[in-house]
Design a protein around this nucleic acid. Structure first.
Lengths: 341, 341
DNA sequence: AGGGTTTTCCAAAGCGCTTTTATTTTTGCC
DNA sequence: GGCAAAAATAAAAGCGCTTTGGAAAACCCT
């Protein structure tokens, strides 16, 4: 069932039917209801490809996931972000396109996306420091919203981000106020902008309290469980072991917890953990009492907001760029306590 | 830069240029190279919408994720599956569309997808027992591959699945052979087909060894950490506590481990855990020595294979339906030991 | 050289929709 | 009742590509 058939069935022109369907005013109410009813009854749905070709809009948003060759990891945060964004798209009648792009031919990939015309805008994931994609996208004129920010990029662009620096400063300070002095940081990969900012926050808190920065207590890796485990195991074997860990992800924190147990130590009493918590649906941080003291910020919410932002940007480009800084909540759980003396 | 402009630039007709670009034989080698070179130089890329409209193919695959209203969870497995599939699509020049569909209006959604014409086929996620989507999709004639199977559906259809039943039978038997008798099952939601099959496998093993099935040791919930923790905590508080747990997910297993620690018990010595392991990139099950004894099956590989299967099905529909049963590997880790006497 | 093939290229139609422009019908007013 | 204006509908062009049905050019025989 296509427009032509529908219009023949109704004894109307395609024009009139199209207008009736799309809510244009130059069609009488009586025919409009008649058309709507027929469309409903005959189960008519416009072909989006044709519609897109005619209107120049694709009614789809692209999500570009950089896939680095060294790090095959799929960011676990991704599923929840997409879920949030998906809700927004569904409401707006937009489709979501996913594109995994090996980071070596990113430039090509974005130009490709632009030329293929399958999306009206894109969400940029995983920005790094001085991310060149931002300049590229501005240049080729494809609307976009960055999930995160990019330090050292001075162009104006739209983004939504958590206050990573503030959160980690606050979390570290929380530990310091509990009397901790040797505080380890198990960060994500620090060429990633979020991780870079988290380190800055951590360092700021230490500096503010006159604690010297000890690089032997700092790690930067992909945020897996095994990473947390190994790093903590190694650090806890030292004579001058850290009394607290700041983790970039609950998954890493779980690894740290494993190492703590294995070393015969007790969480919160002997060693504290504070972690960032993306509020992932399958990794709920406890129930009433959180397992981990955490800096919580729902990545699902961020996804939904990012999508809404992009959609409004596409509708009214002149209103951009837009930015939005979300604050993480510090929630006290059972993984922190006063520093062991 | 579109076809028309390119052809004018080359002083050729659109026909010839199109044919040269798409590898049709009725064009001389010399003009072909000339066209290819110009396309390259001028950075020409065909508009996919137009191409799709003309050919009737969308060059895109849809992934439909059912979003139940009660369970807001995003399956953590999803990211890795998508990553695997994405690789296959990238190779074939296909795009990937994601669609989150609330399960109440699924029928509508699939018809919609069909009519909108934005995809050439779909991957069905999260099949339940007697999944009605299979009949629906067969009826509307949209090529599809199910990730998993659906018990009680008798139509022929294409699927790729892990031998869940076999895996859980084997895992349970492994525990029995270690002397365990009170073996708990922390399963996923059992209206989901995979979970149903896992229970069958578990029950078969018990039955084969004359162990009676104790429903008080069986749970069926969404596979979160907190679920594993709560269930294990409750069961370990009994006088007749289980000596081993069979878990449907590493995440749940982590929750069980937490409960074991908290109860002052020692993993593998006092209580054993065996778990299914989807080989998620961010939840690696240890390194040389696996943390958990597990039934491992890479969901990423499944994603890639599912995508390839669907693509070949689209190319040659008469070759279908295809099916593929993957076997899970039993890997021995540090979470199992002989039953405490 | 001339007729038949084969090769190479092209004009035009068509994919299903929107939108511009044109035409017909209805309405409002004196 | 008649005319202009407004409302309703229609015809046709266009979005960027593929593909059908020819036509022109090149090639191959005898």
């Amino acid at each position: 069932m296509n427009l032509k058939q529908l219009s023949e069935h109704l004894n109307l022109s395609q024009t009139t039917v199209s207008r009736a369907l799309n809510g244009y005013p130059e069609v009488s109410e009586s025919t409009r209801t008649r058309v709507l009813k027929a469309a409903q009854d005959l189960n008519y749905r416009p072909n989006l490809r044709a519609k897109g070709l005619a209107t120049g809009r694709a009614l789809a948003i692209g999500h570009v996931i950089p896939v680095s060759n060294q790090h095959e990891m799929v960011n676990p945060v991704f599923g929840d972000f997409i879920a949030g964004a998906g809700e927004s798209y569904a409401r707006a009648g937009y489709d979501m396109m996913l594109k995994l792009v090996p980071d070596r031919d990113e430039t090509r990939a974005y130009e490709d996306i632009r030329a293929r015309g399958t999306v009206d805008g894109i969400i940029v994931h995983g920005p790094v420091i001085n991310d060149e994609r931002i300049a590229l996208l501005s240049r080729i004129g494809l609307p976009f919203v960055v999930h995160g920010r990019s330090t050292d990029v001075n162009l104006p662009y739209s983004w939504i981000d958590v206050n990573n620096r503030g959160a980690f400063e606050r979390g570290t300070q929380f530990l310091i106020e509990l009397g901790h002095k040797r505080i380890a940081l198990l960060n994500g990969l620090e060429h990633m902008d979020f991780a870079f900012r988290r380190r800055k926050g951590y360092e700021t808190a230490l500096r503010n309290h006159g604690i010297s920065i000890d690089t032997s207590l700092m790690r930067s890796e992909e945020m897996t469980e095994i990473y947390g485990y190994r790093a903590a195991k190694e650090m806890l074997a030292r004579s001058q072991k850290p009394t607290a860990f700041v983790c970039s992800s609950i998954i890493t924190a779980i690894g740290v917890r494993r190492a703590i147990h294995e070393a015969g130590l007790v969480l919160a009493r002997d060693v504290s953990i504070i972690t960032h918590d993306d509020a992932l649906s399958y990794l709920e941080n406890g129930d009433d009492v959180p397992i981990f003291t955490a800096l919580r910020s729902s990545v699902r919410y961020a996804g939904s907001e990012a999508a809404d932002m992009l959609l409004s940007l596409i509708a009214l480009p002149q209103k951009g760029p837009k930015t939005r800084l979300l604050e993480a909540d510090l929630i006290i759980g059972r993984s922190t306590g006063p520093a062991a003396t």
